[in-house]
Design a protein around this nucleic acid. Structure first.
Lengths: 226, 226
DNA sequence: GCTGCTCTGCACATCTTGTGCACAAGGGGT
DNA sequence: ACCCCTTGTGCACAAGATGTGCAGAGCAGC
C-alpha cells in the first residue's frame, strides 16, 4: 500500500522522523511547516492521507482540519503533545481518523497509517487522469492524447485540484483558498486569467471541453473528449 | 451512524462499560465472553465492527483476528492491557483497524469507533432520485433518463427542496422561505418564473410530470415518468 | 530581458426578479 | 343549475443584478 502523505508540523525533527519512517514503508512524503502552507498543499487534493500536528503556531491543526473538511475528505491523523481527552474527542468529531500522542513510536504510527489507508480503499491513484487528459503533478507533466502539454506551476496546481475532485463543482473562493490559503486571497480575475490560459493550452492540444464553468456556482471538470 | 457492534472480552465489567458507552452513542451491542464464542458470533457476519480484547484465555484476540480474517473483513478494534509496541504493530498487521490500551477513556473509544465506521461504512451519497429524474446538488448535476439537464442555481435549489420532501405538498410561502429566508421575501410571481423554466427544461428532457401544482395549496413532486 | 504571475477595467453572458395580463378553479349567490 | 366574482396560477417579456471572459500592463524572480 503505497500512498502520498502530507506531514504538517512545525518541528523539523519530527518531520524528519516521519519522513524516514514513512519513506521506508514505501510512501511518498511531502512536508509543510505551518498551517497556511499545510492547508494550501492539502487542498491540492493529491494526498491520500494527512498527518497533522495540533499544536501549530497561528492556525492550529483543529482549525486546519475544520477548514479542509469543508471541501475535502482526505483522511487525517492528528498528532499532539497534549494528553487531553477533550482534544481527542474533538479531533475525531472534526473528522479525524486517528489520534496519536507524542512521544509516539514511529513503527506504531506507520502501522496505524497503514490501517487507515487500507480502510480508505484502493481509490489511490498516483497520477490523475480523465478522458484523454492525464496529469502527473510529481513529474510536472501533462498530456492530451499522450502528447505533452507544457503548463506553468499555477496552471498545474489548478488543474490538479480540479482533477482531484472530478465530479464536484469547485467554487471560486474554494479554489483560490486551495491555491493561496484561506486569506492569502488574490483577485477573482487572476483565477480567470489562469483558467483562460489553461483552456487555451488544452484546446490547442485538442481537448476543448476539459474545464466547464457553472454559472454562479464555480468550476468543474468536463468529459475531456478529444 | 448507528451500527451493530460485537464486544469480545472476558471481563464482565469492561463489557458493561462498553455496552453502556456504545449504547448511548446509538449503537447496538452484542457480547461474547471468550474467544470461541466470539469467533462464532463474529462469523455470523452481521456486525459492522468488532471490539476485541487481546488478553483472552485460551484463544487470544490476535489468533481470533487471524482466524476471522480468513473469511471476513469486518473492522476490528483491539483492546489490551499490554503496552508492548510489538503487540500493537502485530495487531495492525493482522488486519486490525485500531489499537486501544487499557485503561481507556470510553468517550475516546466511542470516538475512535465512530471514525472507523465513517470510513468503512457504505458511502451514502446525498443524491436525490425519483422516477427517471436524478439530482445531485454537490455535483450540480441533474439528469432525466441519465441524460444531463443543465439547471441554474435557483432552479436546482427549488428542485432539491421539492425532492427532499417527495410526498408532501410544499406551500408557496414555505418554498420562498426555504430559498430566501423567512423574511427575505420575493414576489410569488418570481417563484412562478423559476417553476416555469424548470418545467420547460424537464419537459424538453422528456419528463413532463415532475412538478405538480395543487391549486390553493402549493407544489409537489409528481411521478416523474418518461 | 525573459517568463510567468497578478491586477485592472471593461465587455459580454447569464441569471434573477418584477410586472402585467390571461386563464383556471372553486364558492356563493340567485 | 347557472353565472359571476374572488383567488390562485401560468406565461411572456423586460429591466436589474451578478458573474464571467478577455486583453493589456505592471511586477517579481531567474
Amino acid at each position: 500500500m503505497k500512498a502520498e502523505i502530507l506531514i504538517v508540523d512545525d518541528d523539523p525533527q519530527i518531520r524528519s522522523v516521519l519522513r524516514i519512517a514513512l519513506g521506508q514503508a514505501g510512501h511518498s512524503v511531502t512536508e509543510a511547516g505551518d498551517g497556511a502552507e499545510g492547508l494550501a498543499k492539502a487542498r491540492s487534493g493529491r494526498f491520500d492521507l494527512i498527518v497533522l500536528d495540533i499544536g501549530l503556531p497561528e492556525m492550529d491543526g483543529l482549525a486546519l482540519c475544520r477548514a479542509l473538511r469543508t471541501t475535502d475528505q482526505t483522511p487525517v491523523v492528528f498528532l499532539t503533545a497534549r494528553q487531553d481527552e477533550i482534544d481527542r474527542v474533538l479531533g475525531f468529531e472534526l473528522g479525524g481518523d486517528d489520534y496519536v500522542t507524542k512521544p509516539f513510536s514511529p513503527r506504531e504510527l506507520v502501522a496505524r497509517i497503514g490501517a487507515i489507508l487500507k480502510r480508505s480503499g484502493p481509490q489511490v491513484q498516483p497520477s490523475l487522469a480523465r478522458g484523454v487528459l492525464k496529469l502527473d503533478p510529481d513529474r510536472h507533466m501533462c498530456t492530451v492524447q499522450d502528447r505533452p502539454v507544457t503548463l506553468t506551476a499555477r496552471e498545474m496546481e489548478i488543474l490538479a485540484h480540479l482533477m482531484a475532485h472530478p465530479d464536484r463543482v469547485s467554487a471560486r473562493p474554494a479554489l483560490t483558498d486551495a491555491l493561496y490559503g484561506r486569506n492569502g486571497g488574490v483577485s477573482d480575475r487572476t483565477l480567470d486569467s489562469h483558467l483562460r490560459n489553461l483552456r487555451a493550452k488544452l484546446a490547442q492540444a485538442g481537448c476543448d471541453d476539459a474545464i466547464e464553468t457553472v454559472h454562479g456556482i464555480g468550476i468543474r471538470m468536463g468529459p475531456c473528449t478529444a
